[in-house]
Design a protein around this nucleic acid. Structure first.
Lengths: 337, 337
DNA sequence: ACATTGGTTGCAAGCGTATTCATTGGAGCC
DNA sequence: GGCTCCAATGAATACGCTTGCAACCAATGT
């Protein structure tokens, strides 16, 4: 690793090839006014001399960075790493890079927001379910395209979100169809729009089908431990099923029920379909979030010239039935990836 | 969200305040030659007029982006999201942002490498255990600081890596101490330096203690499924313990053993200490990678002016004993985060 | 009183590319 | 052939900031 062999500039390449600097620039700009001959000559020359346009300089003049800021807070919930992975890949396919802003609970959010602005990202995708209050958020994203993922917001911000109402209904319908009538609920973050939507859609559907809500435990956070505690909290009421607001909660809850020897008697359902839900040790029935659709919709919104209306996009997923509600579903090992 | 209210430039702010543009620049540059008075006046004015230096322009002149490229490939293994989260936070604390390059198996790695160069990141951290061959890597990181994480490399590249030899020895010693004598091994990626190191240190120590290696299964990848298959493969030899090259393998293996009713008879050990290892349902004994030390060492290397020598940094972790090897260790729920 | 010093400040020259504007040359047309 | 018109090219400027350089001023030493 010898230190910087100082890359060629467009001007240097131009004089090497006996053309103007503008010609070099145009050769690399699709659709610009340049003859096919010249362009090819320049591109060949560039290749030969190992020239590559400096993206920083180009950002300065074009006022476009081709960088998307991704604001994340909750990497503990395995759903998010999976989402982030797919999202960055989707963005890459569209020629965009991902700058990760990791909002830490209690840390100086201000600084992060300032960074978002000074780095001039073209767009911001907010995955952080909580922490960010709307005002801070608006300030940070002012003047640039922004998309909220799995987080509802004001009408004037693009939002891509799993259809929680459909999900909650599908889950309740399933529980009803297998004979459950007394159902408990373990919440995650209760103050978020997503949390409230899942909860209310759930209870509404319960009522419609004449089922009984035996109790609600508020986890306060999406974590294994919270699910464990939530399940234990609901146990005394002897529900015949428990709906956990997310898979990670459900896994904790399932383990708690197993420990208590109650897992066989209580059907458990999660939400998200994280990889672990399909592990034979859990075989969790859950509502699969349509990650691919979420990602492609998000990328579409970001690269679109003009905002669509309406700006709230709900995408439906599928119910995935596994042994945690229907024990005879074969919990065999799924095929190798 | 009205469209861009076009931010102030340093020159505009300067004329607003009746100072020179250079003064504004210096006010924002720590350690530059400017009086405390003037700096304060300018910073106040900047605040008032909502001025903020344009990072892009600054990158162009300073030839520094304050951006670190993070090359990742294996987000399926939960250890990596955890590492990435801590790493981005550590970098943020040092004033660096993280640009995520997600190398997808079989995709156009070339394009990614080109992106790394054109975006002029100051440094590159490579977490991808595989896929990238050394030549491509050298090309991409040419002229900029780079650190390989948990991946050994040539002597002339900085490397930060968990001490796999210490880990493997600690694990074997532990197995020996609890009376195991016939041990099986489930490998992950067998062609990587890390994989080979763990394997050889493991077998060496086995031999030293006069224990018997009953068999080796090569998972080929770090995944739950591979662990499941590996465990089943080793079962016929009736080992009294199995060492899995990573936790994610171990979890799959543990579930397979439970399914076969063999979990009680076979001590299982993993490597990494991912969050799931501590779940009561698994309670996996494992060797904890010193993530904090890894991260801070990495950040140190990146911000250091001059490369240290030697450039290979091995960090030791700790053995974490849980019920998967010592059943009477209380597998109770660990305290809430 | 005068030269020297050192800390402040402004001026101006970049950093590497995109793009406007003017110029040129040739094709096409009557 | 003279004209228009358009595509292709280059010169020049802008993008917003950093920094070397020179000018300046006050304080200090003799």
């Amino acid at each position: 690793m010898g230190s910087a062999p100082k890359p060629l500039t467009s001007r240097q390449l131009a004089s090497l090839l006996g053309v103007s600097q503008s010609a070099v620039s145009r050769a690399f700009t699709p659709g610009s006014s340049i003859s096919a001959d010249l362009r090819e000559r320049i591109l060949n020359g560039a290749n030969e001399h190992d020239y590559r346009p400096n993206a920083i300089a180009s950002m300065l003049t074009k006022r476009r960075t081709n960088i998307v800021g991704i604001v994340v807070s909750d990497m503990q919930n395995p759903f998010y790493p999976a989402l982030i992975e797919r999202l960055t890949q989707g963005l890459q396919r569209a020629g965009l890079q991902s700058l990760l802003f990791n909002i830490t609970r209690g840390a100086n959010i201000e600084d992060q927001m300032i960074a978002i602005r000074t780095y001039n990202v073209d767009a911001v995708v907010v995955i952080a379910a909580t922490i960010l209050n709307p005002r801070t958020l608006m300030w940070a994203t002012e003047g640039r395209r922004s998309v909220l993922l799995n987080r509802l917001g004001q009408d004037d911000i693009d939002t891509v979100c799993c259809d929680n109402v459909d999900g909650a209904r599908a889950i309740v319908d399933h529980l009803h169809s297998i004979g459950c009538r007394r159902v408990g609920y373990v919440a995650g973050l209760t103050k978020t729009a997503v949390g409230m939507t899942r909860h209310s859609a759930f209870t509404t559907r319960l009522a419609e089908l004449g089922m009984r809500l035996t109790g609600t435990a508020s986890g306060g956070v999406y974590s294994y431990d919270a699910g464990w505690r939530g399940a234990l909290e609901l146990l005394p009421e002897r529900p015949d099923a428990i709906f956990f607001a997310s898979d990670i909660l459900a896994l904790g809850g399932l383990d708690a029920l197993k420990r208590e020897g109650a897992a066989g008697d209580i059907a458990t359902v999660g939400f998200d379909d994280i990889p672990m839900a399909s592990w034979p040790g859990y075989a969790l029935t859950t509502y699969r979030q349509p990650i691919d659709a979420i990602v492609s919709k998000t990328v579409d919104l970001i690269v679109a010239e003009n905002p669509e209306t309406p700006r709230q996009h709900l995408l439906v997923g599928d119910l995935v039935v596994r042994a945690s509600t229907v024990p005879d579903v074969t919990p065999g090992l799924h095929p190798q990836p």
